[in-house]
């Protein structure tokens, strides 16, 4: 090894040490835990090794509910938020007056505390014995009867959850897409204009392919982010998610570790690995689709 690469490794030591201790080792440990059966965290003993943890988790109704919730959240919010973000970004890039003001407004949710936003959503959507939230007042206005979005039927809670998630993830996507749109060389648009291209065709044939790498980036990170949903759910429905029927996979993992029925690192690890497998599969599929359809220049 020459001096140059020795130096390089020397500089890397702090990063490698930290990553090793706090990322690589825990990852490895999660795998180990997940195969240790009947692990007792107090005595740090276990009965044996095997796949029982996985079969327990996969048969647990709470886990099945969490899996279902997470999938619904992912399938609804990822396309919706990406599509809406694209719409907003195109709108933002085509206006000239007050563009910066609107950009700032759309970016506000990004810098707002998740729990604060959750609280606001709760107030907006809630229904108590005495008062109706803002949303229910609107429903009343149109002659409907009020719904308890926070503590009511499943679909109502899921609606709030989806709206909330879309609202929270939007600013980042808008930010990425507006900068992607801004980075398209204006000559392309000029050339298209000289050739009399309709604006829809310009968008579909030029803009969209040009920013497609960024759209795919957002879809992939959107999938990963939505699969990891937890904090947002807590912000609206509180910590007892299993009782609310709104738990997510990450929520289940957390509950298994620290919740009321917690203290089961093996089950938590198994659930975490199931989540990992799902995210990995979806990401690989995404990348395969991307390789086939996204145009590289």
């Amino acid at each position: 090894m020459n001096t140059r690469s020795m130096k390089g490794w020397l500089y890397l030591i702090p990063a490698i040490a930290f990553l090793g201790v706090f990322v690589v080792y825990p990852l490895f440990d999660v795998v180990v835990y997940s195969f240790e059966e009947g692990y007792n965290s107090a005595s740090q003993t276990f009965f044996g090794t095997g796949t029982y943890n996985f079969s327990y988790v996969l048969r647990d109704t709470y886990f099945i509910q969490a899996l279902k919730n997470t999938f619904i959240l992912v399938i609804i919010t990822v396309p919706l938020s990406t599509g809406l973000a694209l719409l907003i970004s195109v709108g933002l890039s085509s206006i000239k007056k007050l563009q910066e003001l609107y950009q700032t407004i759309f970016f506000l949710p990004y810098v707002t505390n998740t729990l604060a936003v959750g609280l606001v959503f709760m107030i907006l959507f809630q229904k108590t014995a005495y008062t109706d939230g803002f949303v229910n007042q609107i429903i009343h206005l149109f002659g409907g009867s009020s719904v308890d979005f926070i503590d009511g039927p499943y679909w109502a809670k899921m609606t709030v959850m989806c709206i909330y998630t879309v609202w929270v993830v939007m600013p980042f996507k808008v930010l990425i897409l507006t900068s992607a749109l801004a980075s398209v060389n204006p000559d392309y648009y000029k050339a298209a204009k000289v050739d009399g291209t309709s604006s829809w065709r310009i968008f579909y044939k030029i803009t969209l392919p040009m920013i497609s790498p960024m759209i795919f980036y957002l879809i992939i990170t959107g999938f990963i982010g939505a699969f990891k949903a937890y904090g947002d759910v807590v912000a609206i429905f509180g910590t007892n998610l299993n009782a609310a029927g709104m738990n997510t996979i990450v929520g289940y993992v957390y509950d298994m570790l620290y919740g009321d029925g917690g203290g089961y690192p093996s089950y938590a690890s198994a659930a975490a690995l199931v989540l990992f497998a799902i995210v990995l599969t979806i990401t690989v599929i995404n990348l395969l689709i991307q390789r086939r359809s996204v145009q590289t220049s």
Binding site: N185, K193, I206
Partner: peptide, 27 residues
């Protein structure tokens, strides 16, 4: 421009990178 009947070549050429040469010319 399209009513005037002009053809324009840009300094950057503005060739659409995701289309083939033929698709570019046919655009």
């Amino acid at each position: 421009p399209e009513v005037r009947g002009v053809g324009m070549v840009f300094q950057s050429y503005a060739l659409y990178p995701h289309m083939t040469v033929l698709q570019n010319i046919m655009f």
